[in-house]
């Protein structure tokens, strides 16, 4: 409940900020942008190591984002870090309500490969290093599972300037080669028992996997409003889908709505 209030408060602050900064009409292009974002996720999850049951997920995401454009706007570097915490719920028993945390680090390098109408529409393509760690827990580790992926993804981003202060961006990224770490067949083995105090060993010891085994995509679309030369705000919708074709399958679909405020310099 408190977290929902924070989301509402953040949205209100954003709208107030719009009014304060929306007086300026001419914008200077800044090459760096740093922002914070906050969002709400609603989705579904099934992890056969965790449970045979289907779960609904609700969680709150917060994170930091940085983007750099080189002087001619040809190359783009962006990175973001996010942390999400939430609840897993099955329709069968309230008692089975569980918790999850999800951490993401993305580092992308994109290159502009085309533009239309004097940069009104720009297309970037590139690659991304992505690491994602998700931990599921019921009743203080009476049941737990995790899935960690570290690897490269292909990403395309399309930018469209509606008006000088209004911009829409849509991007799609697809992981192509990952190091995948998951609990073994039976959820726990001697490796996990011996390394229970060494989390990094658990989440970075995995097997290579490609799209044949781990299929995922992240599609994000967002709207940006330029408040001033120094600030903009952003509303974003992200659809994240993951599916592991394993003996114990893992499927997750996330619908994420986020808002962010960014400082340009």
């Amino acid at each position: 409940m408190i977290n929902k209030k924070i989301v509402v408060l953040f949205a209100l602050l954003s709208s107030i900020t719009i009014k304060i900064f929306s007086q300026s009409n001419t914008l200077k292009v800044q090459k760096n942008q740093f922002g914070i974002f906050y969002g709400y996720n609603q989705g579904f999850l099934k992890d056969h190591i965790f449970s045979d049951l289907n779960y609904s997920t609700k969680g709150l995401k917060r994170g930091l984002h940085y983007r750099h454009l080189n002087p001619n706007g040809k190359n783009m570097f962006e990175t973001n870090f996010s942390l999400e915490g939430g609840k897993l719920k099955t329709e069968y028993a309230d008692y089975f309500k569980s918790a999850y945390i999800l951490a993401n680090i993305n580092i992308a390098f994109l290159r502009k490969i085309g533009n239309v109408d004097n940069n009104k529409l720009k297309l970037y393509l590139g690659g991304k290093f992505k690491t994602q760690i998700q931990y599921l827990d019921w009743n203080d580790q009476n049941t737990f599972s995790y899935i960690a992926t570290h690897g490269v993804a292909l990403q395309s981003s399309l930018f469209y300037h509606l008006k000088p202060k209004h911009k829409i961006e849509t991007s799609l990224s697809i992981p192509v080669y990952q190091l995948l770490a998951r609990p073994p067949y039976n959820g726990i083995d001697n490796f996990i028992t011996e390394n229970e105090d060494n989390i990094s060993e658990l989440i970075f010891t995995g097997k290579p996997t490609t799209v044949n085994n781990y299929l995922a995509f992240t599609w994000a679309t967002n709207y940006t409003y330029e408040l001033s030369n120094r600030f903009n705000i952003n509303l974003s919708y992200t659809l994240n889908y993951e599916r592991l074709f394993d003996e114990h399958k893992f499927i997750q679909l996330q619908n994420l709505l986020t808002s962010s405020i960014n400082y340009k310099f």
């Binding site: 190591i49 965790f50 449970s51 045979d52 049951l53 099955t90 069968y92 028993a93 008692y95 089975f96 019921w138 009743n139 009476n142 049941t143 737990f144 599972s145 039976n186 959820g187 726990i188 028992t193």
Partner: peptide
């Protein structure tokens, strides 16, 4: 060692 607690659709585990 024991397994994770496993869940049944009738609310038992």
């Amino acid at each position: 060692d024991v397994s994770n607690r496993k869940f049944l659709p009738n609310g038992w585990s």
